[in-house]
Each structure stands twice: as C-alpha cells, then as structure tokens.
Design a binder for these strands. Structure first.
Lengths: 206, 206
DNA sequence: TAGATTGTTAATCGATTAACAATC
DNA sequence: TAGATTGTTAATCGATTAACAATC
C-alpha cells in the first residue's frame, strides 16, 4: 500500500525544526520537548508532534526528544544526510557574496561551480572558483550530474537559463531573480525575493 | 462594524500578483484575467479572484482586469504606493551586495543607511553610503523614524541587534541570519535563509 | 447579441488544535 | 510512584475549489 503523501506545508517546516535543533546542539543541549521547540519557533507543540509523527516516533513519553537523534532523523528525511553539489549561475555581487558564504556546507550544500555570461567575469576568481562561461553550462552540469542550482542572474535571463538547467537535468532551482519561472512539474523551484518579503510586511504598517 | 481581518496567507500572495502585473506592464500589456494570471503563477483563477475580492471589485465581467489599475490598487493595499526608508544592518559581502542592488526602489524601498560594528568597515563607502557605527544604530534609527530594517549580520549577533532595532521603533525586519528571532507581537519578521529553501526541495530529490 | 469573465456562494478539502490514553 | 510528555484521535477551524448568476 502506498503511504499517504506528506503535505508540502509540513515539509516546509522540517528545515525550520532542523535549524533550531542544530542551534540547540551548539548550545550544548541534549534533550528538548515539542513545547520548548514550539515556543522558540512560534509554532504550537501539537503541530510539531503531528508533523514529526508523519515520519515515525522519535520521542519518549515523559522526557521529550534527544536533540541529536531527532536532528539526524530530520537530516535523513530531508535528504541532507549527504552533501548536494550545487551549481551557481551568476557571478554578480549577489552571486559572489553567496559563493563566499561559508554556511552552506554544514547544511548539506557544496557550491561546485559558478557561471556567468559576461566576458569580463569569465575566468576571474570567486573564492576558490574560476568563473565559467555560461555557454558551457548545459553540457558541464549534465556531465557532472548536478541536480541543484542557485539562479542569481538578471530577471531577463532567468527563464532562458532555467530552461537550460532543466535540460541539463537540474531538479531543484533556488531562484533569486524576481520573476516566476515556468518549469516542468518534476522540477522544484523556490523563490527568494527580498522586495516580496518586505511588501508582505508593509501591509501591516501605517 | 469591524471588517473581518484578511488572512496572512492572502497577504502573502498579493506581492506575487503585483510582481507579475508589473512584469506584464513592462511587456506592454494592458488587460489580463484571473485565468491568465493564474496560469503564469501556478495558482487557480478562483483563488486569485477570491483573494482580490477581499479588498474590493477591481475587474470587469467579460473583460478581466486593467493591469495598471489593479497594480495600483495592490500597491495601495500593500502600502507600497510610497517609498519606505530602510536601514541595512551589516556591511559584509551579502549586505553590500544587497545595498548595491538597484531593484528595491521601484518596489517601494529605499535603503537609507548601512551599519556595521567592524572598525575596519566603519567609515568605508558602500555605494553612496558611508558605513556607520552600529553603536549609534539605536539612536539614529529612532531619530530617523525608520520602521523597516534588513538584518544581514552573523547569526550570533542577530538577536541582540534585533532587540536594538525593536527599541528603535522598527516594525518590520527582513532577517538574513539563519536563526529565529524573538520579537514583540507587533514587530513583523520575515526570514530569508537559502539553506532552508534548498532543504525544502531536497526532500523531493533522490 | 453571444461570448467571456467577474464576484460570490456553497461545498469540499485540508490543516490545526485540543484532549487524552499510553508510557517513560 | 508521580510527573511529564509523547503519539494519535476526533473536533474545530480555515482555505481552496467548483459553480453560476450577474453583467460587461
């Protein structure tokens, strides 16, 4: 019998739980409870327990959850008990800043290559990488079997580059361009657009 | 009679609609329909109409929506029919990249000042700004009556800086640090954490 | 007019919460 | 043991969709 599929909204909360647990670990904590976790995150304890129960029984009545154990389980569930190789497309200010950011590796992601189409940038160094020519993006990403990409190109290029990524076999795109991407159903897209986030808050301001 | 409050999930979609409409405007389009907009965004036409109906009647039967008119209404609703002055906290790679990014102004946001606590950075130029000393952040932001901030500091500083922002009167914080912030109920926070977004997608990958 | 599309209602669907037996 | 907290069920709450009268 096919297991009932997990709601995407639940999947979306798991990385938040994981991040909080890893934070607790760094604080030297060993055990937590759904109530404590919920208070930190502004989520009800019942919801956390319900979400986790979709995947198994990870806690103990009376004591709660062993943080390390639960974090390990969440890493497995989210498939970040490994390191995903990531292609970065766009070596502008933002792309370079993200490439320098050291925090990805410990969360399961390793930037492997950076592309740009600007001849001025191709061949220059960004951290340990030499910026590659976008013209070769499709062939190289396909050859490397890379499935995850960060798209940090100007809005006008986002859709055509996304299409190349899809053709290269990429299945997950983190899109920093402020445009909606049209991709096949089996390709996942997440958007990061600061203006959109800000506008969501100004609604509540005077 | 107090109007029924609008669900936050609806508010969250309005900036997406607005962005798509502004994109259509740049394409030279004049009129659209809930169906067309929905197809572009992967949202049902019924939902778009329902969302908009919370705020008024903006369309015409038989013809749809005048794009410019609807975009203007959404800007009003979201309170981005003005320009919000924004304080940027953190002049690292990411903060500087964001400060250089020219796309905020047309979406309703104007970065006004940039802070850092690093003596090496204080006084240096980022775009048109001179990096200010974080020590003066509270007093200056309060004096300027700035309500919106982008928090781009290392994780360990995010909570204490957020507390200063709150004390300075900031009501909306866009948080780039990968930690949950604890703030009063009348302060809005949105999180941007690329690893979290990526982890949400790797769940679906093999 | 005929065709198209809105705004809205009612029905459906899904998510969250409350409550508690089980049990550490 | 007594106290605490899980995992789960059932009830509640809220969001989405389908359908259609109104009307441009």
């Amino acid at each position: 019998m096919q297991a009932k599929s997990i709601p995407d909204i639940v999947i979306g909360r798991l990385p938040i739980y994981l991040r909080a647990l890893q934070h607790m670990l760094r604080e030297g904590r060993q055990v937590t409870s759904s109530q404590e976790l919920g208070e930190r995150l502004g989520i009800s304890a019942a919801q956390i327990r319900k979400d986790l129960s979709q995947f198994g029984e990870f806690g103990k009545q009376g004591t709660g959850y062993t943080i390390k154990f639960l974090a390990d389980r969440l890493q497995e569930i989210l498939h970040v008990d490994r390191v995903w190789r990531v292609a970065m497309i766009g070596a502008g200010d933002l792309g370079r800043a993200l490439a320098h950011y050291g925090g990805f590796a410990e969360r399961g992601f390793q930037i492997e290559m950076i592309y740009d189409s600007d001849p001025e940038k191709i061949g220059t160094k960004v951290g340990n990488f030499v910026v590659r020519d976008s013209a070769n993006l499709l062939a190289e990403i396909k050859a490397e079997s890379i499935q995850v990409a960060m798209l940090v190109v100007p809005a006008a290029f986002a859709q055509p580059v996304a299409e190349q990524l899809v053709e290269a076999g990429v299945k997950a795109i983190l899109n920093y361009a402020p445009v909606n991407l049209s991709v096949p159903a089996d390709v996942h897209v997440q958007h990061i657009d600061p203006s959109t986030h800000l506008q969501r808050m100004t609604y509540y301001l005077e």
